[in-house]
């Protein structure tokens, strides 16, 4: 049984009240950035927002990928996937290369550009609360039951069940089931996901595999390269020597 926790966001149930937004701000002690949660955008002080797509509300937050791209690209391992599911960030390790921001397929991480010792900021799925057995602040605050917290396996089953039970309500796909190798945040919607601002051209394969394939070749390149270069050195050296010897032999014969 997997210990992975996750979130299921059912956009058809979201009323855009902004409770999740406010709860997130309070729990993570983030400064107020906008009085209207529907008009805010993700920033180093805002981990989640509600977006209004022609009357259809959707949430934007870190998807907590099963195989996170950000964690795979971080040269110093400042981002890690925890056994509980959240992808967390250690500011004491971070060197500030921002490769995580560049690489994130959902473009989630935000940066403290104005700070002199900047940190990467993003939703961490209330890791401290989750470790303590609680649910995330946003799920707890949601009055409409649109965001629910639970075991990832159960949430997946629940999402599929909802689509099966009312196929007329839902677009027949659970976002996060397979996008980029799957995510711990699942999304249900009534329309295709690109209309809600989700990235829909992601491969099903986890993105870290794309660089893994290149990195795997390094040992081969190094060993074959050493042999090739060493061999070339020996061959060309020998060739030069033979040329020299021949020239000398010729001179002597003459």
């Amino acid at each position: 049984m997997s210990t992975q926790k996750g979130l299921l966001f059912d956009s058809t149930m979201c009323v855009g009240c902004g409770e999740c937004y406010r709860a997130c701000k309070t729990t993570n002690k983030l400064p107020e950035t906008n009085s209207d949660p529907l008009k805010d955008h993700l920033s180093c002080s805002t981990y989640t927002v509600i977006e209004d797509h022609q009357g259809k509300y959707t949430r934007k937050l870190c998807m907590h990928c099963a195989e996170p791209t950000c964690a795979s690209v971080c040269p110093v391992g400042a981002l890690t996937k925890t056994s509980e599911g959240p992808v967390v960030y250690d500011e004491n390790k971070c060197i500030g290369c921002r490769y995580c921001m560049q690489a994130c397929p959902h473009s989630i991480p935000r940066y403290e550009w104005t700070s002199n010792n900047p940190r990467v900021r993003k939703c961490i799925m209330c890791h401290e609360r989750v470790k303590a057995g609680m649910q995330t602040a946003c799920a707890e605050a949601c009055p409409a039951g649109a965001t629910i917290f639970g075991n990832l396996d159960e949430l997946k089953a629940e999402a599929l069940k909802r689509i099966k039970e009312s196929p007329s309500t839902y677009y027949p796909h659970v976002y996060g089931m397979k996008e980029g190798g799957g995510t711990n945040v699942l999304v249900l919607a009534s329309t295709p996901f690109d209309q809600l601002g989700f990235v829909t051209n992601l491969p099903d394969e986890a993105l870290p595999n794309f660089t893994k394939r290149a990195l795997e070749k390094i040992p081969t390149v190094v060993s074959a390269g050493t042999v090739f270069l060493g061999g070339m050195y020996w061959l060309t050296k020998r060739k030069n020597e033979i040329a020299k010897e021949n020239a000398q032999a010729k001179e002597r014969k003459n």
Partner: peptide
């Protein structure tokens, strides 16, 4: 100049993430 936390640049020496291309480049 580009690193947000340039004083931590030496972290690549001791905090390894061999899955990262950036780590290898460093």
């Amino acid at each position: 100049f580009d690193l947000g936390r340039p004083l931590n640049i030496w972290h690549a020496l001791i905090m390894w993430n061999p899955h990262s291309v950036m780590f290898e480049v460093a």
